[in-house]
Amino acid sequence: MKKWFMVTVVGKDRPGIVAHISEALYQGGCQLGEASMMRLGGNFTIMLMVEHDTEAKTLSELLEAPADALGLRIHVDEIEGHLHEHLFPDVSVMVHGADRLGIVAQVTHVLAEAGLNILDLESDVAGTEQEPIYIMHVEGVAAKGIETLELALDSLVTEGIEVRLTPIDTMIA
């Protein structure tokens, strides 16, 4: 019986990793689903849904050769997920400020309390080493409405973090 697995691959970034990993999975008879790759601090990271009629151990073995050759660490979990279960965000939140401890915790705590379900998050540290700045982009569903989020965020802006909410009005035509 076919099952879905979440395969996580992490290692030092270099060209060709996606090609090698996907080739090994293809040769092993795996179907790929949704995936997200990002380069974080010079590291290659990817999470991908893989469907196969095997056990997690077999899937790990399938990826052993490319992992060894490219110096990658592989982690495989059997998951309950399915395809075609997308949720669509109705709000985008851009955050930026001088980098300091606790920005993510403060912002996401306030947003969660005000009903935000985060669907997508990416963040970066930019600026210079002496004066790093933090930038975060979140998309999600505002379960209690966007005005509730706006009200909740008012307190944060005074603490030196700029937060901008933009409604995502998806056009279906």
């Binding site: 075609h84 669509f88 995502i168 009005d169 998806t170 056009m171 279906i172 035509a173």
Partner: peptide, 9 residues
């Protein structure tokens, strides 16, 4: 802008 389509579920 964000778009969707009845022909692309």
């Amino acid at each position: 802008g964000r778009e969707g389509c009845m022909s692309v579920p």
